[in-house]
């Protein structure tokens, strides 16, 4: 009787091979994003296979001994993937980014003074068409084009990022700042404006009981007119004390009326720039 029971048990056991027997999973170490993958399995029977990774959580019934197909869409996100079957075997692989498909470009600042060294910074983050950061080195060309004058520099990405610093051009105006890599290109506009005033000069004349002080046309050292609205400060110092008047540049010049004085020293400043001094009085 005992041997009969054992025989029946062995017979029954041999009819249950489909409960997944040793599924040896062989996967490559890395797969490029957007490429499908065929995973060979060994063993026999039906099993559940799981794939868990970034943006992915798949459970599928598979026949052991046959290849399991993962589609390009299932492997589009870069990162680490775990693949395992319910019989216990498992493997991991990485999906890595494909070729450059897009760029995120930070250009700072949006408004800069002309003729200033290393004042414009550009940072490019390169992604593939699935928005995976491209970790392998890629050249990025930065190009600044202002008033027909073009400056370009090529930098190589490290861990998906390239950056540069460029001088602003001598002439004011809207500069086109472009970062490009492969077929991807992004454009930003950097407004270049006149820098600090250069050779700030004033002249004065008597005017109905006061002193009318006016600047020459105010320009930066590259000859760009300093924008209207910029504050210019006029100061008069005499025996009675100090008088200060702030005036805005209007149509390229600034002017102010200072209290009449028989003997005063008049000066002018705009921001950190100090102009000439006039000694007023004694027939001047």
């Amino acid at each position: 009787m005992k041997s009969l029971r054992l025989t029946i048990f062995l017979l029954l056991a041999s009819t249950v091979p489909y409960a997944a027997q040793a599924a040896d999973l062989k996967v490559p170490a890395t797969v490029t994003a957007g490429n499908g993958l065929s995973i060979p399995t060994s063993g026999s029977g039906e099993a559940s296979l799981y794939v868990v990774g970034p943006g992915t959580a798949i459970k599928k019934k598979v026949q052991l001994g046959q290849d399991v197909q993962l589609t390009a869409d299932e492997l589009k996100n870069a990162g680490r993937y775990m693949v395992f079957v319910d019989s216990g075997d498992s493997a991991t692989f990485f999906v890595t980014a494909g070729p450059v498909g897009s760029i995120a470009f930070l250009a700072r600042p949006s408004r800069v003074p002309a003729a200033t060294p290393n004042v414009i910074s550009g940072t490019a983050f390169v992604f593939d068409k699935y928005q995976n950061l491209v970790m392998h080195p890629e050249p990025v060309k930065f190009e600044l084009d202002a008033n027909g004058m073009s400056v370009s520099r090529t930098e190589t990405t490290r861990n998906g990022i390239a950056y540069t610093k460029l001088d602003s051009s001598r002439k004011e105006g809207a500069a086109q700042f472009v970062a490009s890599s492969g077929s991807a290109s992004v454009r930003r506009v950097v407004q270049e404006v006149a820098s600090d005033p250069c050779n700030l000069r004033i002249h004065a004349e008597r005017d109905k009981g006061s002193i009318l002080v006016q600047t020459d046309p105010i320009k930066d050292c590259s000859g760009n007119p300093v924008p209207d609205g910029t504050i210019v400060t006029f100061t008069s110092l005499d025996a009675k004390g100090k008088s200060t008047v702030d005036a805005r540049i209007k149509r390229g010049v600034a002017q102010a009326q200072l209290p009449a004085s028989s003997n005063a020293t008049i000066s002018v400043a705009a921001g950190v720039v100090v102009g000439n001094e006039i000694r007023w009085g004694g027939g001047q």
């Binding site: 930070l106 700072r108 910074s121 940072t123 490290r158 861990n159």
Partner: peptide, 12 residues
Amino acid sequence: AIFYSPEGSAIE
């Protein structure tokens, strides 16, 4: 930290 952007808005 391996990258900190010049204008301070991104860090890798």
